[in-house]
Design a protein around this nucleic acid. Structure first.
Length: 263
DNA sequence: ATGGTTGCTTTGCAA
């Protein structure tokens, strides 16, 4: 089973790319972030025509996440628990049935947090603390769980072409990285990190200043696997070529292959 | 070198 995360940066602006990539890549489950539309604006028909079930958690203009799945949804949960006042659409969980039982997949869009020293950075750290609490509870279920998305965290120096450029950025703050590490340390396997020793593996290249042409990228899109999911990890990879397409997202798809079949 | 680009709505904001 192929599970992919992709920050699409505006699904309406990117629908042609998305359809072309779905046809090429044939994923089973797709976690999208930054759909930048309310649920009613999501280009659902084009995706359903390819055989996908679609569940969205959108909002006007900003943020917004979605799950696309060839498997039927048994359950869908929208929003990260822990703050009833949080209006931002950044979290959706789908529950599926496989030959091995339940599979849970989350599409998350972790707050960017810039600039550091403002309420935006506090919101990022608060959101990460809520995510850790949520993950701690979910791990108690001892089920295959894939926690996928744009984490807006550069875990290590090797995860940036030029880490020195990011030392004042929320994505590379020690507090952001420590919170990400703490989440991983609950028992998750970070799919890309655990399957390659390569350096220079990036998932985001800024639109500005020729970042793509210079391969000046960062790795901020991650798939975290619960122990039960990690037991079935067969492969993980980054679809870098998509960044060179016309009208690309600034992020590319990141894939894990799990050796489990649909029920 | 405090630039540069994109999407969604604005005349700026967020990334």
């Amino acid at each position: 089973m192929k599970i992919v995360t992709w920050n699409i940066n505006g699904v309406r602006a990117r629908i042609e790319n998305l359809v072309a990539w779905l046809k090429e890549s044939q994923p089973d489950i797709v976690c999208l972030q930054e759909i930048k539309t309310v649920d009613e604006g999501f280009p659902r028909a084009e995706i359903e025509a390819l055989g996908y079930n679609v569940e969205t958690h959108g909002q006007k203009s900003f943020n917004g996440v979605a799950l696309l799945s060839k498997l039927p949804f048994d359950e869908v949960n929208r929003g990260l628990p822990g703050d009833d006042g949080d209006e931002q659409a950044r979290f959706i969980e789908g529950v599926f049935s496989t030959e091995r039982g339940v599979l849970r997949v989350v599409s998350l869009y972790l707050p960017n947090g810039n600039p550091v020293g403002t309420e935006k950075f506090d919101y990022k750290l608060g959101w990460m603390a809520r995510l850790e609490r949520w993950a701690r509870d979910r791990l108690l279920l001892e089920e295959p769980l894939v926690l996928a998305g744009d984490y807006n965290v550069i875990p290590q120096k090797d995860d940036a072409k030029r880490w020195q450029d990011w030392v004042n950025d929320a994505l590379f703050q020690l507090r952001s990285r420590a919170a990400f590490q703490a989440l991983c340390n609950l028992g998750f396997t970070e799919a890309i990190r655990s399957t390659t020793d390569d350096t220079g593996v990036y998932t985001f290249w800024d639109y500005q200043a020729g970042a793509w042409q210079k391969n000046n990228g960062i790795r901020i899109d991650h798939l975290l696997l619960s122990p039960e999911a990690a037991d079935r990890l067969a492969a993980a990879s980054v679809d870098k070529h998509v960044r060179a397409w016309e009208k690309p997202s600034d992020h590319v798809p990141v894939t894990v292959e799990l050796s489990v079949r649909a029920a």
